[in-house]
């Protein structure tokens, strides 16, 4: 963490692995991505893994993180970050590979990659931002859109009889991943806990135990069309009501 005060002016606290030149970041005001990536940055700083890390980001709002860190970064195609990071890790096991994606990338277009990476227990870390909709394309229904929730493609609310129920990713990964996996769901509404989960997910990879998967409940006030109060209510009540926050696998992994 850098000095907070510079020339008598209070500076925003930034993880040192964040790339200063590309700040401010490109996310909308109130977006949860910045919070997730900040705690990820803090975890990277604390573990000192910046130099062996490759950060991969998907398509969707997550791609806006392509120049966020002072870390080797590859921005891939929609849904393909998991295989790209898998390929890297398989070719050079010294790399700490982090795949960062949204719910569309992980649970829709790239779901076969997430599922099979979990089955194979790939020694990589996958962080998935769940904000209940496709943000970058303008707020369509995502695999994680809550029942009854209004989006651009469900203007009368998500009808579960037609479109099914929201995907519970961590539950799926936890169900199929072998011994050694770490699986959790955190939320931007509990940053301290989220950071603990992400750090454990990285440590699990460093220890070579197996796949590490953390879904992060996040916010999208731009597409939700919510004010600050409504946004937090949605994250803390509606989302957390449906998506249970906590560790699903590997909770015995010690915090570092």
């Amino acid at each position: 963490m850098q000095e907070l005060e510079e020339d008598g002016i209070l500076q925003p606290a930034m993880p040192s692995c964040w790339c200063q030149e590309t700040k401010p970041h490109k996310f909308c005001p109130g977006c949860g991505h910045g919070i997730i990536l900040k705690v990820l940055g803090e975890a990277i700083d604390e573990l000192g893994i910046k130099d062996t890390m490759v950060f991969g980001c998907d398509i969707g709002c997550s791609l806006l993180s392509w120049d966020l860190f002072s870390i080797d970064t590859v921005q891939t195609h929609h849904g393909r970050t998991t295989p790209v990071i898998t390929g890297m890790k398989r070719a050079n096991s010294d790399i700490i590979g982090v795949a960062y994606m949204g719910d569309g990338g992980g649970y829709a277009i790239g779901s076969q990659h997430l599922f099979n990476a979990a089955v194979r227990n790939e020694k990589i870390t996958i962080l998935l931002c769940n904000n209940c909709n496709y943000g970058m394309t303008g707020g369509q229904m995502a695999p994680t859109t809550l029942p009854g929730m209004k989006t651009e493609t469900t203007p009368y609310g998500r009808d579960v009889s037609e479109t099914g129920y929201p995907t519970k990713g961590p539950e799926m990964v936890a169900a199929v991943a072998p011994e050694g996996a770490y699986v959790a769901r955190g939320t931007i509404a509990n940053v301290r806990q989220l950071k603990g989960f992400i750090k454990k997910a990285l440590e699990n990879q460093i220890a070579g135990r197996g796949i590490s998967f953390v879904e992060c409940l996040s916010s999208c006030p731009t597409n939700w069309r919510t004010n600050a109060k409504q946004t937090w209510e949605f994250v803390e009540k509606d989302m957390a009501g449906f998506f249970k926050v906590g560790e699903l696998r590997g909770s015995e992994v010690k915090e570092g």
Partner: peptide
């Protein structure tokens, strides 16, 4: 294809 891309990148 994409795992190969990843491998090549390393």
């Amino acid at each position: 294809g994409f795992t190969t891309v990843g491998g090549v990148m390393t």
